[in-house]
Computed example of a mutant assay.
Amino acid sequence: IQQLQEFMNHRVPSNCRYQPTEYEHAANCATHAFWILPSILGSSILYILSDDQWETISAWIYGFGLSSLFIVSTIFHTISWKKRHLRTVEHCLHMFDRMVIYFFIAASYAPWLNLRELGPWASHMRWIIWIMASIGTVYVFFFHERYKLVELVCYVIMGFFPALVILSMPNRDGLLELVAGGFFYCLGMVFFKSDGRIPFAHAIWHLFVAMGAGIHYYAIWRYLYQPGALDTKTSPR
């Protein structure tokens, strides 16, 4: 790491934003821009494979959340890198970037909650998760960058709490992939909080996000949208 010190700036206080180097800015943009087209194509595939209204709705919600994550992140990092004099625009995009994460988490659960049979108590998670996303969005609007640890905890809670509904699903196909994807997200958080300690830490976090999202997409495609999975699904009532 010592040999790579020129590629990163010093760590900043908790109440300040880390300023990436030129190399890190470029990496931050590239590591999410690369996945924009695949996310759009993947979402389109799910839409094409949809056989009923709820599959179509779920494909739209999930696809919009997945694509928005990479598009908004790329736009924010590009503006932050190339248009540093647009501080107000950059600040708004940074907030939007954080808000989109809540929407992405909710959208990632939507196909499972909408298309799988759930237990009586677990069915409420279909709307609870969107309330959680709304609360997270409001939190970012009022407390953006003030309490970074609290924000991280909010992401973790929203990421794992809805997963408990899997325990109520009679059909648990895809559980291994969901756990594997969650593992990559959790491991990536180490780098998410390592700016100024590890060169290209944020870009590495982006790669872990892409890997986690890719695994979860595979699980949705295989276990919810393939013809062999049709008999194991049910629409919300």
Results as ranks from 00 to 15, higher is better:
residue 126 R to K: 15
residue 126 R to I: 07
residue 127 W to Q: 10
residue 127 W to G: 02
residue 128 I to S: 09
residue 130 W to S: 06
residue 130 W to G: 05
residue 130 W to P: 01
residue 131 I to V: 15
residue 131 I to C: 11
residue 133 A to W: 00
residue 133 A to L: 01
residue 133 A to G: 01
residue 133 A to M: 01
residue 134 S to I: 00
residue 135 I to K: 05
residue 135 I to M: 09
residue 135 I to H: 03
residue 136 G to A: 08
residue 136 G to C: 06
residue 136 G to Q: 03
residue 137 T to I: 13
residue 137 T to L: 07
residue 138 V to H: 08
residue 139 Y to R: 07
residue 140 V to E: 02
residue 141 F to T: 14
residue 142 F to C: 11
residue 142 F to Y: 15
residue 143 F to M: 13
residue 144 H to N: 11
residue 145 E to L: 14
residue 145 E to P: 10
residue 146 R to V: 11
residue 148 K to G: 07
residue 148 K to C: 04
residue 153 V to F: 13
residue 154 C to Y: 10
residue 155 Y to T: 04
residue 155 Y to R: 01
residue 156 V to K: 07
residue 156 V to W: 12
residue 158 M to H: 01
residue 158 M to E: 07
residue 159 G to R: 00
residue 159 G to K: 00
residue 159 G to E: 00
residue 160 F to G: 09
residue 160 F to L: 15
residue 161 F to M: 15
residue 161 F to G: 04
residue 161 F to D: 08
residue 162 P to G: 01
residue 162 P to S: 03
residue 162 P to K: 03
residue 162 P to C: 04
residue 162 P to F: 01
residue 162 P to H: 02
residue 162 P to R: 02
residue 162 P to A: 06
residue 163 A to P: 04
residue 163 A to E: 04
residue 163 A to R: 00
residue 165 V to S: 10
residue 165 V to M: 11
residue 166 I to R: 12
residue 166 I to Q: 08
residue 166 I to V: 09
residue 167 L to T: 07
residue 167 L to I: 12
residue 169 M to C: 08
residue 169 M to L: 05
residue 169 M to Q: 06
residue 169 M to R: 00
residue 169 M to F: 06
residue 170 P to Y: 14
residue 173 D to K: 11
residue 174 G to A: 05
residue 174 G to T: 08
residue 175 L to A: 13
residue 175 L to Y: 09
residue 178 L to A: 11
residue 178 L to P: 01
residue 179 V to W: 11
residue 180 A to W: 08
residue 181 G to Y: 00
residue 182 G to S: 10
